[in-house]
Computed example of a mutant assay.
Amino acid sequence: MSERQRPWSDDGVEHGRILVLSDNPIARALAAIASTVGRTVVVEPADDGGPGLDPRPGDAVVLCDHDAPDAPAVLRAALASEAAYVAMMASRRRAAGLVEELVAEGVDVSTLHVPAGHDLGGRTPGEIALSVVAEIVAESHGRPGGPMRG
């Protein structure tokens, strides 16, 4: 069977972890979906950042609670790290203040995905999590996402 005919591959492609702050319905749905697609997920339940997510090269960092007390510090550290993907769950309007604060501190937010995920129109925790996992998978393969049809 040619590579073109193979619909999927179970070849051992290594991906970074998905680090999630904090524990809420979206984070739990994200962990379930990401685990299903073979990603390692670490959910930090403490909304103050706990012991720290400590992103490594290739990791994805998803802030599921933009109101968490340590949100600015978590984003600051993630954006300064070698994480491959940094995102925050929030509308552009709700995230604006936090992003402005980071910019005022001199933090480069050009790689920050806010709002996190692809625009699928979902409203439930599972649908929102699906859009975020889809974006992480697309980014990890250097793809923009979107329909495969031409």
Rank of each mutant, 00 (worst) to 15 (best):
95 A>E: 06
26 I>N: 00
3 E>Y: 09
24 N>Q: 00
145 G>C: 13
21 L>V: 11
3 E>Q: 12
5 Q>N: 13
32 A>K: 12
116 A>D: 05
49 G>N: 04
150 G>H: 09
97 G>Q: 06
51 P>A: 15
28 R>S: 08
85 Y>M: 04
58 G>I: 03
82 E>Q: 13
55 P>W: 03
27 A>G: 08
92 R>T: 14
17 R>C: 02
25 P>V: 00
2 S>P: 13
26 I>W: 02
48 D>S: 10
19 L>Y: 01
91 S>H: 07
115 P>C: 11
60 A>H: 07
130 L>G: 05
48 D>Q: 05
33 I>D: 04
144 P>D: 07
30 L>G: 02
34 A>I: 02
117 G>H: 07
43 V>M: 03
110 S>L: 09
105 E>L: 15
20 V>S: 02
132 V>N: 02
125 P>Y: 09
82 E>C: 01
131 S>H: 10
87 A>E: 03
58 G>R: 13
13 V>Q: 12
42 V>N: 01
22 S>N: 11
87 A>F: 02
52 G>A: 11
118 H>T: 14
39 R>H: 07
110 S>T: 15
73 A>K: 12
62 V>C: 11
141 H>T: 10
134 A>K: 06
38 G>S: 07
25 P>C: 00
87 A>V: 02
144 P>W: 05
107 V>H: 08
59 D>V: 07
14 E>G: 00
150 G>S: 10
130 L>A: 14
37 V>H: 08
128 I>Y: 06
5 Q>A: 15
95 A>T: 05
51 P>G: 15
145 G>A: 12
139 E>W: 06
86 V>N: 09
140 S>F: 00
23 D>N: 07
92 R>K: 14
10 D>Q: 14
39 R>C: 02
144 P>I: 00
100 E>C: 08
